[in-house]
C-alpha cells in the first residue's frame, strides 16, 4: 500500500503507483496509457467480432451440404483471384487477425497488471456488486478460454492434429462431422462458445464506451446491439453441434466418400450438378 508522503510545498499526497513515461510518437503513444490501450482493445475487438460473425455466417454453408461448404472454403483461398496468387489475400487477412489478437491480448494483460497494482484486492468485509455483471467480471477468464479454444480449434479443424487419418484436407463438412462425433470435443466447443458469447456481451457494449461512441440519440441502442451480437454468435455457432447431433449434417446421405482418393473432384462434380 502506498504510504502517505509530503509533496514539496507541504501538500500531503500518496506516492503514485506508476511513473509517467516519455511519450512515444503517435500512434505508439496510444499504447502507453490505459485509455489508449482500451481504445486499441475496442478497435481490435471490433475487428475480431467482425471475424467471428463472418466466420459464423460463412459456416452456415454447412447446411447446404458438403459441396457448397467446400466451395465456400475454396472461395476464401481464391479471394482476389484475378489480381493475387491463390491464398495471398487469405494470408493477409490471417496476418491481420493475428495482429489484432496480439494487440487485444497484450492490452488485456498489461491493463490487468496495472489494475492489480492499483487495487489492493477484495474488501475483507465482502463486496456487493450492483452494476458489474457476470460478463464484465469474467472478461479476464472468458478471454483466455477463447484463446485456448482458438488454438484447439485450429489444431483440430485446420491442421487436423487429432483427427489423424480421418482428417480430409479440403472437405470441411466431413471434418466437422468427424470432430463433432467426439463427446469431449463437443463439450469443449459448447463451453467455449458460451464463453465467447459472454465475452461479446460485455465487449460489444464496452467497446462503445472505450471508443467514446456516445450520443443521447442512440445510446439506448448500445446494450441492444451488444445483446443481439452475442445472441447471434451464440445461436449460430451452437447450431452446428446441436443440429449435427440431431442428424441434420451427418454423413449418412453423402454422395462422395470422404476417404476416397477423388473426393475433391467428386465434390466439384456434385457442385456443378447442383448448379
Amino acid at each position: 500500500m502506498a504510504k502517505t508522503m509530503s509533496k514539496p510545498g507541504g501538500s500531503r499526497r500518496p506516492d503514485p503507483i506508476r511513473k509517467p513515461v516519455k511519450a512515444l510518437p503517435f500512434p505508439l503513444s496510444l499504447g502507453q496509457t490505459a485509455v489508449g490501450k482500451k481504445w486499441l482493445m475496442a478497435l481490435t475487438g471490433v475487428g475480431l467480432l467482425g471475424f467471428v460473425v463472418a466466420h459464423m455466417i460463412g459456416n452456415l454453408h454447412v447446411y447446404e451440404g458438403p459441396a457448397r461448404l467446400a466451395e465456400y472454403a475454396e472461395t476464401l483461398r481464391t479471394l482476389g483471384a484475378g489480381l493475387f496468387p491463390r491464398g495471398v489475400i487469405l494470408w493477409i487477412m490471417r496476418l491481420g487477425l493475428i495482429a489484432m489478437f496480439g494487440i487485444h491480448i497484450w492490452a488485456a494483460v498489461t491493463l490487468n497488471q496495472m489494475n492489480l497494482k492499483a487495487s489492493p484486492g477484495s474488501y475483507p468485509g465482502g463486496r456487493d456488486y450492483i452494476a458489474a455483471n457476470f460478463a464484465s467480471r469474467t472478461m479476464r477468464w472468458t478471454g483466455p478460454i477463447i484463446l485456448l479454444y482458438l488454438l484447439f480449434h485450429l489444431a483440430d479443424l485446420t491442421w487436423g492434429w487429432w483427427l489423424g487419418d480421418k482428417f480430409v484436407h479440403g472437405d470441411p463438412y466431413h471434418n466437422l462431422d468427424a470432430s463433432m462425433n467426439r463427446i469431449p470435443v463437443l463439450a469443449i466447443y459448447i463451453v467455449a462458445n458460451i464463453a465467447l458469447a459472454i465475452h461479446i456481451f460485455h465487449g460489444a457494449w464496452s467497446m462503445f464506451q472505450s471508443l467514446g461512441i456516445n450520443n443521447p440519440k442512440y445510446n439506448s441502442l448500445r446494450r441492444g446491439i451488444a445483446v443481439s451480437l452475442a445472441g447471434l454468435v451464440l445461436v449460430g455457432n451452437l447450431s452446428f453441434p446441436i443440429l449435427n447431433a440431431a442428424g441434420l449434417t451427418d454423413e449418412d446421405n453423402r454422395k462422395c466418400d470422404p476417404y476416397a482418393e477423388n473426393v475433391l473432384e467428386c465434390l466439384e462434380e456434385q457442385l456443378v450438378e447442383e448448379h
Binding site: 500518496p14 503514485p16 503507483i17 506508476r18 511513473k19 509517467p20 496509457t33 490505459a34 485509455v35 490501450k37 482500451k38 491493463l111 496495472m114 489494475n115 497494482k117 492499483a118 487495487s119 456488486y129 450492483i130 452494476a131 458489474a132 464484465s136 467480471r137 472478461m139 460485455h202 457494449w205 464496452s206 464506451q209 472505450s210
Partner: peptide, 21 residues
Amino acid sequence: MVETMEEYFGSCTNHGECHEA
C-alpha cells in the same frame, strides 16, 4: 488529467459500479 489519473489509479473496464455508487 488522464495521464495523471493513470499514475494513481487503475483502468476502466466498463463495469459501471462507479455510477451505481
